[in-house]
Design a protein around this nucleic acid. Structure first.
Length: 674
DNA sequence: GAGTTTGAAACT
DNA sequence: CAGTTTCAAACTC
């Protein structure tokens, strides 16, 4: 921690921290790939700002603190913004005053941010920005951390880009560029931080930071939070806000801010998240949906990039964004390599659902079908009141929503205090109760294809399972559920975990599964290609102009990418990137048969669904990718290509986004000192 | 959909 | 820390 602090501090002193990235081959590569100028935009700043400032639960305090302090990207944002603020000169004040409401939220966030992160480099950077930026009425304040000047300065910085016609592409590039920051030594954690931050930022948004101007959104929020309060994310621009809004309005737990913005949370979560039944949090299993959520969030992040590349960023009207989505979908057909973007677009559609109830309904439905079908946490608690870790929602750090079948549920915004107290209690008992259960080392899933065989279970369940009868071959097993192999920490009996056995057995089963997957998948593909219903379903895609075509090119692509199905596929999919070895097929007949059957089901589902939810199918599996280290326990893997297929797809992409995802490293340990 | 199985979480 | 109970998801029929 100290080292990180020092490091960050050093960065603060560095005049041009971003030069590091710009000089890097990766950066250059990105620039070359992207036709867009790497203009630093507020969106990036906001995105990462929110990431940097969001509040991880106490459990993650240490590791996340590291992230915060290793926030070169954060600095970078502000460096850029500062420049803008300075350049734009007088733009600040008038514009800042124009939207007092927005400013109120901003100020609030800024205030909290500064108050609680006064010792962090990020904060220091912010302070520096403020001090440098022309302040109309900066009263100075106590060290500038909570001064009006600070807020003004930040306001200016945030508003200036908003007002200016920052090229969307600029945003995209900026995002891309910024994302590369995660290639820092701590990028693994940084990503986790990112994930957490995003989710946290969502909570923030859910809690009160609203893209739309709502005067009383923050008036009940104390400027100076309690010591327990964690800093709020800086207010993202409207673009980000808009993009996040949909997801933000999902059931969100704001554990860090007990009682805070309760009204907002209730309003937003109840009315928006719950009513919309918008479950962006994929259900991966106990303590894994945070991962999924994280992944999704990251995707939302990417969506932002993607959408902004088409539309207008912060002030882009909804319809414009919608058009972007359409455009994205259109491109999807013509450009297989855009699958990721398409996926993002689909997600974005979901995000916009609240905003445009009447538009893209088909797409929304399609997305929701997938999203809610398996990716959404829906508990069924009867006795726990959804206030124990038994409850997946609670364990995942999300509020229960309408689809839940829970009884006497207390895991709702209206019971926020109870939820927070309970969570606190649980954490006091087990500080890692909400920590990720599955930890992936950096060399595991990310490079699935190559490393899977080398490191069968480099991703490990934190505590290890205790399976007795399931042989770690069913989702009863947390390891299996998390898509990781059993480890020495496991106390399982008769372990046959397909992802790696406790005894260190190689992924023979996985190999077999992979081979089998290909076979089944090919069969399925052939089957689908001649499925008469496909054309009908294709029609559901607005951009599809040839309904009679059994399988448009992209659809074939989809069919050939069964493993990319985000939530439809069992965890094993993550490892299915490597080449298969038929010679290994006969090993472990029983479990393999079981896996085979399972896989068949999965493939069928995928094949069927993909006709309707094409974009979704193209989504990189959150599970496969991210090992999120979010407060929301269910750990996720970073938003990156979980399988070699996905990776290859990403590799086909010619823009930075794909690279961004690939660049995100796997997660490190939860060691607070890292 | 009901009932069973399973293992994590919670409790003692 | 170990044993037991409770719980809800996963699974089966």
């Amino acid at each position: 921690m100290d080292n990180l602090q020092k490091k960050s501090t050093t960065q603060i002193d560095t005049p041009t921290p971003k030069s590091k990235f710009e000089d890097s081959p990766v950066f250059n590569y990105i620039n070359n790939l992207s036709p867009i100028e790497p203009v630093k935009s507020i969106s990036t700043t906001q995105t990462f700002s929110s990431l940097s400032f969001t509040s991880p639960p106490p459990v993650f305090t240490s590791p996340h603190a590291s992230f915060h302090r290793e926030s070169r990207f954060f600095r970078c944002h502000y460096s850029v913004d500062r420049s803008k603020a300075l350049d734009s000169g007088s733009v600040s004040k008038e514009e800042a005053d124009v939207d007092l409401n927005k400013d109120a939220s901003l100020e609030e966030d800024e205030q909290e941010t500064t108050d609680h992160h006064g010792d962090s480099p990020c904060n220091g950077d912010v302070v520096a920005e403020v001090l440098v930026a022309p302040s109309d009425d900066s009263p100075g304040g106590d060290g500038g951390l909570s001064s009006e000047g600070v807020r003004k300065g930040l306001r200016k910085m945030l508003d200036a880009p908003e007002e200016s016609d920052t090229p969307n592409s600029g945003r995209l590039s900026s995002d891309s560029t910024e994302l590369f920051v995660f290639r820092s030594p701590n990028d693994s954690e940084a990503f986790g931080c990112l994930v957490d931050k995003i989710s946290s930022s969502e909570r923030r948004f859910c809690a009160g930071v609203r893209p739309t101007k709502q005067p009383d959104t923050t008036k009940d929020v104390p400027v100076n939070g309690s010591s327990n309060e964690l800093p709020l994310a800086l207010l993202p621009n409207e673009s980000v806000s808009t993009l996040h809004r949909g997801t933000m309005r999902r059931r969100c737990l704001d554990f860090e801010v007990p009682g805070k913005r309760k009204k907002d949370v209730e309003t937003v979560c109840d009315n928006k998240a719950e009513s919309s039944s918008k479950c962006v949090v994929p259900g991966i299993g106990l303590h894994l949906n945070a991962i999924a959520m994280a992944a999704r969030e990251s995707k939302v992040n990417v969506i932002h990039e993607y959408s902004t590349s088409f539309s207008g960023g912060s002030t882009t009207p909804i319809h414009s964004q919608e058009d972007s989505m359409r455009e994205a979908l259109d491109q999807e057909e013509s450009e297989p390599g855009e699958v990721l973007a398409i996926e993002d677009a689909s997600n974005a559609i979901v995000v916009y659902e609240d905003l445009n109830p009447g538009s893209l309904k088909k797409k929304k439905r399609m997305v929701e079908q997938v999203g809610e079908g398996e990716s959404c946490k829906r508990c069924n608690c009867k006795k726990s009141k959804c206030l124990k870790l038994y409850c997946e929602c609670f364990a995942a750090g999300v509020y229960c929503i309408e689809p839940c079948s829970c009884v006497d549920c207390f895991n709702k915004p209206i019971h926020e205090d109870v939820v927070l107290a309970t969570r606190k209690q649980i954490e006091s008992r087990n500080p890692l109760a909400f920590a990720p259960k599955v930890i992936r080392s950096a060399d595991s899933i990310m490079d699935t294809g190559d490393d899977a065989s080398k490191t069968p279970a480099s991703a490990r369940h934190k505590r290890g399972c205790n399976c007795k009868k399931s042989s770690c071959l069913k989702k009863y097993c947390e390891c299996y559920q998390g898509g990781v192999g059993c480890s020495i920490n496991c106390r399982c009996e008769g372990c046959k975990n397909a992802f790696g056995r406790k005894d260190g057995s190689l992924l023979v089963i996985m190999e077999n599964k992979h081979t089998e997957d290909h076979e089944i998948y090919e069969k399925r593909t052939a089957k689908i290609q001649y499925n008469s219903e496909v054309p009908k379903e294709v029609e559901q895609i607005p951009s599809s102009d040839q309904p009679s075509t059994p399988l448009p090119p992209y659809r074939h692509l989809v069919v050939h990418q069964p493993f990319l199905s985000k939530n439809r596929l069992p965890p094993t999919q993550f490892f299915l990137g490597a080449g298969s070895s038929s010679s290994l097929r006969k090993a472990d007949g029983d479990e393999f048969t079981q896996l085979r059957n399972e896989k068949k089901k999965t493939l069928e589902t995928v094949a069927e669904d993909k006709t309707e939810v094409m974009p979704e199918l193209l989504i990189t599996s959150p599970i496969t990718t991210i090992k999120a280290i979010s407060p929301n326990s269910k750990r996720v893997s970073p938003p990156h290509p979980g399988s070699s297929e996905s990776g290859s797809i990403l590799g086909k992409r010619s823009n930075g986004r794909k690279l961004i995802l690939r660049s995100i490293p796997a997660f490190p340990s939860l060691n607070p000192n890292q």
